[in-house]
Design a protein around this nucleic acid. Structure first.
Lengths: 336, 336
DNA sequence: ACACCCAGTTTACACGTGTTACCAGTGCTC
DNA sequence: GAGCACTGGTAACACGTGTAAACTGGGTGT
């Protein structure tokens, strides 16, 4: 890789600040970090602060965490496009809550389907914590990679506790279960399940399908997986297929996919919910906007502040109190 | 801040790899980075690789960039929740495109409204590039902070070129302009404009409003800003207000807000577009799902690959060819 | 005169890595 | 055997920072 730096502004380090204030670099560090073990006179203190401000000094996070052996970085691996509004609002709240506690939250779109490869990429940043909320994003080996990199706090959502990981109990398949129980209770027995073909979504879609299949088996209902790319034409084609297959209900994976199909069914003269019931998930605002209003499944995460405290505790004390599970509830509306 | 590290796995460094392979640390570095200036025998090469794999060695990005004086980090400041699907798809593509070029893309939700404070936070990470796509997220001073931190590539979208910044020409007010021209051409003269009250959105909303006002002034139309929180009740209240004010058109800021209002208008017996026309923006899939289908304004960014090449060139050569502007076009549908 | 303490500051080392010199050996030529 | 080129490798420094330990004067008690 050829590198010609080009014209470059002088990089300001704490040494420059020290020189400008006429003190040693250690003093600068003490002042800027408010180290209480060192006594600094008020006069030098203000001189250092003035010099730092004057020069526009900004500390070098990499050097700092290298020396300190810890970083204030918290990594949240998640592809932006693969998140619904509910989750991205939660991410926003987490950024605020953790920011208030002095951490720097950073999102990183995970390009590797293999947990160990992904973990290696995360580990390079030596984050203080990793919040791996996507299902199946961790394995035992991946956790070990993170531990060796000094990441003390690893958080995930999983159906069962993982060793070495703070596990928020919650099962994607419960979404399918709740949806299926709802549909069965309304007398539906021939259930189609939309399976999005977009990258990164199958980790969510597969368990939801499994949850539906378990309920269906008990009640003697049939389940038909229906692969579907995100888009209007695909939905239209699928609407025709649903009619031909004689389905009486479809679980849409998601409110967006469900609404897409619902609109397409309407366009083809299929009555929703008269002929085919449609159920989404995530309870997006979209579900309330479309007509017929969309029945959905909503999930609830523990409050961001609560989780932030947990992460903080994991980082500083290595342990934390358990949190309530993630739970799901049906939100019945017009489409079912 | 009290720190008790707790039980901690041994941290593996290149020194450990060197010891395990029976070579010096320099040799390890040469092998792992494929340095071509140093000649290494095939036999030691494989021994080093085996040792690194065996120990699960992961390089320390901070130490690496500290020593090298550059980092492969690219910072994309953006609140996840404040992005439409169009933009988040683009972010996804950028992560892929830049990842292929060897960079690590990282998103950071910007909690500070002040550009200089925000820039200082970004500068701590010493990123190779900053893609500040939100409007008004940069000032001259903020750019200087980044430059002093060694960030060679700064990219933004703005109406006019900024010195020291690679500016993608594009004006949010053009969205308002395009929407207003469309409405005026359909005979509308009393235009309401939704102004979302959510955090971070006013930077987008204000210029769009300004664009509408400019067009309105020319054609003798009136413009009424309508503050609105994201939600069904607010939309309902606003629907009533729109009727009382005798508006004949509303620009909804966004497809989501527009669809919300459109549904509320329908619920209150107001005919869309008969009595009030509604126009959104971003051309989300949502616009095609709702009935009446929503007229929207779509924007186009240069392809992610093109921008990634530009960023790469800015980092390595300090300069890059200009790119085509961001541009906007109306997408007429049933709601206007 | 000496020991001792205290406030205020500096010296010196460590963190993990990339890279520029430099070095040891071997074969080859004159 | 001296000189040289080449192969394969190592020693040592630098990056910017945090912090334990040492240092300096001046005061204070005995």
């Amino acid at each position: 890789m050829a590198f010609s730096k080009g014209p470059q502004a002088a990089r300001i380090t704490s040494t420059d600040v020290a020189r400008a204030a006429g003190v040693s670099r250690a003093t600068v560090s003490f002042v800027l970090n408010g180290t209480s073990t060192a006594r600094i006179s008020e006069e030098t203190r203000s001189r250092v602060l003035a010099a730092a401000d004057e020069l526009g000094y900004v500390p070098h996070a990499a050097a700092r965490s290298l020396r300190a052996g810890r970083s204030d970085l918290i990594l949240l691996p998640a592809a932006v496009s693969a998140t619904g509004r509910l989750f991205s609002d939660w991410v926003d709240d987490m950024e605020t809550a953790l920011g208030e506690r002095g951490y720097t939250v950073v999102l990183h779109g995970n390009r590797s389907p293999d947990p160990v490869t992904a973990a290696r990429a995360w580990a390079q940043l030596r984050p203080a914590a990793v919040l791996a909320m996507a299902p199946n994003s961790l394995t035992a080996e991946a956790v070990q990679v993170l531990a060796q990199a000094g990441t003390t706090a690893v958080l995930t959502i999983a159906p069962e506790p993982m060793p070495g990981v703070f596990t928020l109990l919650g099962d994607q398949s419960d979404i399918g279960r709740v949806a299926a129980e709802h549909l069965v209770s309304r007398g539906r027995r021939r259930i189609g399940v939309l399976m999005p073909t977009e990258r990164g979504l199958s980790a969510f879609a597969e368990p939801r399908l499994a949850g539906i299949q378990r309920v269906a088996t008990v009640h003697g209902a049939t389940v038909t997986p229906l692969p579907m790319p995100y888009g209007g034409e695909a939905a239209s084609a699928l609407a025709v297929l649903c009619r031909e297959l004689g389905l009486d209900a479809v679980f849409g994976y998601n409110d967006e996919y469900a609404a897409l199909l619902s609109a397409a069914l309407n366009d083809h003269g299929v009555d929703v919910p008269g002929q085919i019931a449609v159920v989404g998930a995530d309870d997006l605002l979209l579900a309330q906007i479309v007509r017929p209003q969309l029945t959905s499944v909503r999930y609830r995460l523990p409050a961001a502040d609560l989780i932030a405290d947990t992460v903080d505790s994991l980082i500083n004390r290595g342990t934390a109190e358990p949190l309530p599970s993630v739970w799901f509830e049906p939100v019945p509306r017009q489409s079912s």
